[in-house]
Amino acid sequence: MSKELNLWLDDLLKDIKIIQFKRKNSRRVRIDIAPEALPALLELLQGRASYVHLSAISCVDWIEENEFELVYHVWSYETNSLVSAHTRISREPGVYLSVYDLYTPAAFFERDIHEMFGVYFEGSPDMEKFILTEWNGPPPMRKDFDSEAFVNQTFNWEEYHPQWLKDIEAEGGGITTRPEDVR
């Protein structure tokens, strides 16, 4: 049964013009699809092909293309196969539809992506802050947020000056390269 379902799905997806279908191996499929068609695809996968488990939603900030890539990883317990459905939305305004009505776990992932990337998911049950409750800066997972620069601005480096270093400095030696110089 499961084999047949996979074959059926492969055939079906290959025929659909608006998507790009790529089977990576017997248990991994990559699909690239336009954002407006993604919910329908997920509905199809879940309803017709037993992809009932939303393993994760990943977000990638492609800042140079001014796009966010959203990847929906769904797993079928029946065919033991994972479909990763990729779609790209514009970075501005960074709004997309929630798939919470299809997959309950989406609420967690969407909330996380909203918090870290600033993507707003319409229809998601909970877009409140979760982890960064006291953070007022930009969504930190965006590529244009430089956390190291933030840390360097915000915190001081500990300056050590133990006796052995003083002794070496007295002889004309001392620190030549600090760790931050090579990062």
Partner: peptide, 20 residues
């Protein structure tokens, strides 16, 4: 050669010049 400094994932290594 300071290769240890470059691989250090926590920026824990400082190179010290030691006369002599």
């Amino acid at each position: 050669c300071s290769t240890c400094q470059k691989v250090c994932d926590n920026a824990a290594i400082t190179m010290i010049k030691i006369p002599g």
